[in-house]
């Protein structure tokens, strides 16, 4: 009897449970089978009504928050120009840098193997020396040049280091090297800028363009054909190098200072632009100086002596800077300058 009662209770409970489950499933079934309604609802849609990125950018170029620390720049949440800047220096810049530098190396190699080294033309004046650059001029050239080489290598490390160097030497060695390269880049920038100022002051007078430069350019600078066009202390090509160094050096200094003293003169967007200009001019500067190094050493016999010992062969000077030689000889021959200016044409 008791067992029968238990069976009845179990059956009733199961029936009630099944009925409840069926009732709960009805709305879901109805929802699936019912046609879509077009009745407007007054309930808010949080997703559609919430603030989104596009809406915030209509109010200003950046999205910022509210912070309590003194550095209000930290309130900046999204600055879209930063994505463009990152895209530039991570995708475009390595290709631009490689094209500029490897392109110049290829051009110089082509020039060397087709034109060959420009040999010294001997004459009866060969063996006699004339002072081309005095001690201070060579000092300021080498101070700027040595700093430039360190700045160029450490600067290229910013672009190519993690791509080319880190796989070779490993991340730990690369991190240490990059840290020291960064110190060298930041601190040797100062003697470099000083050297640029010195060079500008010392050589400005001899680098003013004139009609002789036009004739030099028309004659191809002596690179095309035979003979050498007239030139004063600096020919048109050297004047281009001078003004390039002065202009690029100034631009690199200004943009570098903007980054060295962040937010002192411009905001984050301005600093990103400065970094882009700095890197673009930097690779152009390196490519141009590669040509300068080539023609001052391997490319032309006798040219290195001008910055090596300061004295060049008189025959070389007569061939490449004839007007300057005449002026120097006339000046030293007049007497008093012999003591102060060490340019004995002998």
């Amino acid at each position: 009897m008791r067992r029968q009662t238990t069976r009845i209770r179990t059956f009733v409970a199961a029936a009630m449970l099944a009925g409840f489950a069926g009732t709960a499933a009805l709305p879901a079934l109805a929802q699936q089978s019912a046609p879509p309604t077009t009745t407007p609802t007054t309930a808010p849609n949080p997703t559609a009504d919430s603030v989104n990125e596009d809406m915030l950018f209509k109010q200003g170029p950046k999205i910022g928050g509210r912070i309590s620390i003194p550095d209000q720049k930290a309130a900046n949440l999204i600055q879209p120009q930063g994505r463009e800047w990152r895209g530039f220096h991570e995708t475009w810049m390595p290709w631009i840098g490689a094209a500029a530098i490897l392109g110049m190396v290829a051009l110089l190699g082509l020039f060397y193997f087709t034109r060959g080294r420009i040999r010294m033309e001997h004459s009866e004046e060969s063996g006699r020396k004339i002072l081309r650059f005095n001690g201070f001029e060579r000092f300021t050239h080498w101070m700027t040049a040595t700093c430039f080489i360190i700045l160029a290598l450490s600067g290229l490390n910013y672009i190519f280091g993690k791509r080319l160097l880190m796989p070779v030497i490993g991340p730990d060695a690369f991190a240490t090297l990059s840290q020291w390269a960064k110190y060298a880049h930041v601190y040797l920038a100062w003697p470099f800028m000083l050297g640029i100022v010195f060079m500008f002051v010392v050589w400005l007078r001899d680098n003013i363009p004139n009609r002789i430069d036009l004739q030099w350019i028309k004659a191809g600078g002596g690179f095309i054909g035979k003979g050498h066009p007239h030139a004063e202390r600096f020919n048109a090509g050297q004047k281009v190098v001078f003004w390039m160094v002065a202009g690029f050096g100034t631009a690199m200094g200004v943009t570098g200072l903007m980054m060295l003293f962040p937010f002192a003169a411009t905001d984050i967007n301005g600093m990103q632009i400065m970094q882009g200009i700095h890197s673009l001019i930097g690779v152009a500067f390196i490519a141009a100086i590669l040509a300068h190094i080539y023609i001052g050493s391997l490319g032309m016999e006798g040219a290195y002596d001008a910055m090596g010992s300061g004295k060049v062969d008189l025959a070389w000077a007569r061939a490449h800077h004839d007007l300057w030689v005449e002026k120097e000889q006339a000046r030293t021959a007049s007497g008093p300058q012999l003591r102060t200016h060490h340019a004995p044409a002998e």
């Binding site: 060579r138 000092f139 050239h141 080498w142 700093c147 040797l188 003697p191 470099f192």
Partner: peptide, 10 residues
């Protein structure tokens, strides 16, 4: 000499 002085100064 000028080169050495330049490097030291830099």
């Amino acid at each position: 000499k000028a080169f050495a002085v330049a490097v030291i100064c830099a």
